[in-house]
């Protein structure tokens, strides 16, 4: 746990700074009310009415998000593998594989191929095209 204390300290500093800035902002500047100024900016045209609760996201971004999740999870699996796969130095100073070795390689190959199969499918189905 101690490892995270410095991060906490920094977070307090940064957070304090950020919140202070946001909080102080209304008081440092002038106040000149103007209706048009407070409308959403749309290059001078009447602002498009936005639905309460936020607008809809285009579907395209949803797909990107889904793909991201899949690959991010893949990364999560790659990291521990990479760390375990890395050779280490034994007492005599030689670099050796102590653990996964070839097995790890083959398994990861299979894993990546499986992911690539899905990736290929998405690609062919134009899931990666942005038009």
């Amino acid at each position: 746990m101690d490892l995270y204390v410095p991060i906490l300290v920094l977070a307090v500093l940064a957070g304090g700074f950020a919140i202070f800035s946001v909080a102080i902002a209304p008081f440092t500047g002038p106040k000149r009310w103007n209706r048009a100024k407070l409308d959403a900016y749309e290059c001078g045209i009447e602002p498009t009415p936005q639905p309460v609760g936020g607008g809809r996201f285009p579907l395209k971004y949803m797909i990107t998000a889904m793909l991201f999740i899949v690959f991010d999870i893949e990364i999560i699996f790659l990291y521990p593998w990479a760390v375990s796969f890395a050779p280490e130095t034994d007492d005599v100073g030689r670099t050796i594989f102590s653990g996964l070795g070839l097995f790890g390689l083959v398994e990861m190959l299979l894993f990546i191929i499986t992911v690539l199969v899905a990736y290929a499918y998405v690609w062919r189905r134009k899931g990666l095209d942005w038009d």
């Binding site: 999870i73 699996f77 521990p80």
Partner: peptide, 13 residues
Amino acid sequence: AFFVMVVAAAEVV
């Protein structure tokens, strides 16, 4: 937890 994340991701998709 790792596996659950994978499953959750698949479920999201």
